[in-house]
Structure formats: C-alpha cells, structure tokens
Design a protein around this nucleic acid. Sequence first.
DNA 1: GTTGAAATTAGTACGAA
DNA 2: TTCGTACTAATTTCAAC
Lengths: 211, 211
Amino acid sequence: MSEISRNNVSGGGQPGRIGIGLELDDIHLKILEVLRENGRISVAALAERVGISRANAYTRFEALRADGAIKRFTAEIDHVRAGLGITALIFVTVRQQMWKQFRAELARMPEVEYCAITTGQHDAMIQVRVSDVAEVHTMVTDRLANIPAVKATETVFILDEVLRRPYVLPSDRDQARHPRRPAQETQGDVPLGKMRFVGAAEGRAALRKDG
Amino acid sequence: MSEISRNNVSGGGQPGRIGIGLELDDIHLKILEVLRENGRISVAALAERVGISRANAYTRFEALRADGAIKRFTAEIDHVRAGLGITALIFVTVRQQMWKQFRAELARMPEVEYCAITTGQHDAMIQVRVSDVAEVHTMVTDRLANIPAVKATETVFILDEVLRRPYVLPSDRDQARHPRRPAQETQGDVPLGKMRFVGAAEGRAALRKDG
DNA sequence: GTTGAAATTAGTACGAA
DNA sequence: TTCGTACTAATTTCAAC
C-alpha cells in the first residue's frame, strides 16, 4: 500500500471501506478552500468566514478530518532557507515485479519529497531536495543505481519553481477566465503537432498489482 | 517574479534584501520539523515538544514566519475525495523570450497545482488535477496549445502517488540508513549505463532572465 | 531565556428551532 | 442538521525575574 492515497481507494479511515464516506457539499468545499490558504485559522474564525455557526464548523471540521478529505496540516517551508537549495527530478525505469523493493528503498531516502508512478517513457518520477548538486549525483549513482529494481534513471534539475498551489479544488475551476468547453468544440482551433500524449509502456497494465 | 521563491533569492520579506535574514539553529529546525508534521499544533505544545519555554517558542515561531522560512500553513486535501481524481504531468517546451506570457497564462489556470522550470529535453513541467481524463485533453489541446509561448507539450498520467513528504529538511538526512558518502568512494560499485543526466538545452542560459 | 498569573480564545455539551 | 448559549479547558499575552 502506498504511503498516500491511491487514485481509486479512499485514503484514510477503515482499510476495507468501499466508496465515499462523506458527501461534500458547497460548505465543505468552502471550508477546504479556507483551510488550504490558512491551515492555522481557528475554527471560530473559519465559521465566520464560511458563514455557519461555530458548532456546525466544529462538526464539519471533524468530519472532514475523520473522513480523510483533510489528510493533514502542514507548514510550507522555504527549502532554500532550510539549506536545501537544489531540487531535481529523477525519472526512473523500474524492473517489473520489483515495485515492492523500489518502494521500500524510497522510504529510506529522506531527501525524496515526492514520488509518483507515471505512464510514458519512464515508470516513476521522484523529486529530491539536497544542498548541492554533487549530492544529486551521489544519490543517483550511489543510492538509486544500486537498487536492483532500478533499471535506468534520467535526471533533470529544477531551475525555478514558478507556481505551487496549496492544493487544487474543484471550485477553483469556476474562477477561471476561460471556463471549460466540451472537447468536440475545440477541434477547429487546435494548432496541429504541438502536443503529444504518452500512454503506458507495454506490460504496464499489471503495474499496479505487483506494487 | 515567480509566485514562489526562486532558488537563489529569499522568498518573502523585503524585495531588495540580499542574503539570509535569519540563521537557523538546531532549535529552529526542530520547530520546522514539528510544524511540518502538524501545522495546527499550538505554540504551547510546540514549546514542550521542542524543549524550550513558551515565550521562546513564540519568538522563534514569529521570527520564522516573518523571515519567510515558513511560507504558509496549509491543509493537505485528498484530491480524490474533493472530486479531482485525475492527475497528469505536462512537459512543456516554451518559446524563448515568451516566458512572461507563459507565466501569466499559467496563473489563469486553476487546475495547475505545480509548475517548475527544468533542464533537459523540456523547459517546464506542470502538474494538473482534474476530474476526468477528457479534461486533461481539453486542457492541453484547448488551453495550453493556444498559448503562443507553448511550442510543444508531452503529457503523462500519474497512476499512483507513492510518497509525499510535507517538506524535506536537512535534519532528515541524518536519519537515513545509508549516510551520504563522498562521490569518489562510490566509483567502484556503480552499475554502468544505468543513469543519465540531462543538462540544459542550447540557449537556455538566458532562460531565467527573460521570465 | 524563563516562569507565572491575567486576559482572551478555543473546544465541549446540550437544549431549542 | 443546524444554531445559540453556557460552561470548561486551553492558549496567548504580558509582566517580573
């Protein structure tokens, strides 16, 4: 099991539970919206901003937490200030049937901030934060390459992080200047040859089962 | 200027300030460590966990906030529960001299959670969260491809998010099972041909200046 | 940098709408 | 369900050490 929720399974709560435990209404979403911007706001202030009573705010707040819709509260830290000025992305090709090992090794690498399994040319992307470029090299050549599950890696450096939203919510979509149009309406004005979608490699169908 | 801190410039605070404003000692780092796990902990409880007095904790807490070492507090939301079950990475090739436009357009796309400028084959990577796969297609073909700054895109889907650490800190490194070794020691036992580093494309040196 | 006491605020319980 | 209120516990502020 992943450390964070899978795309088709409820994140927290009871292991065997199927389906959604809590129907999120507009007020729930509004609460999430506020909490995402200010994770330390008091429930009293939250109630006022959302326009509900204090008691109701406590009930909903606890429900969102218990349900797993809110996974945790965290402080966003300036990694440069914290001494980790170098960020890199490492794209990893993983040997089939060895995902479990790969995941176990990942858990022992504290410089890894994020890891996702992807379609396309590579199998996984990991993001690491270290204090100097040499450490990236050490990480890749010494640590990652020595994992039998790792077949190949490709590393790029992050030069600048342009945008990081606290967490995207469905309600954000309504604030967009260009609201979503159905796909068929867009066929006429799409510049050709600009984009490319990369599906899963061969044999990847069984990927999620052996993790 | 980026929405979040650049790799070589202090994030918050006064715009013209050069250098670090606050020397982070072990206690500062320990505070960050606690807040990263529990962003809603009271300063009183924080003081106890770190082993300092409350007044000291308040002083340091405020200093970290004012200095920008703590950028903000946020709730981590289960995007699946929130109705955004599809996550994709879009690698974008950007026309030189058009970074400003690209960034401006990004700010108007609420489904974009993260955007980083990278070395390697592409210029930028953006992560989007939407409710169904068709929306990814719409986003790429309708919105992104219509931006003149966008030369080409390549899209992959995220099948599973294996790991997301709240934010990596230097102190994490000491907890690793395999402490970092100098690079020269590793030359003997590195499997050959496994890894590849991808540097910046030609003309990318000026990349960060025209943003 | 620490402790303690006052003022404020947060969290809980419960009855009514 | 949600709201309003009263009650209890905890936190923050501020002062003296």
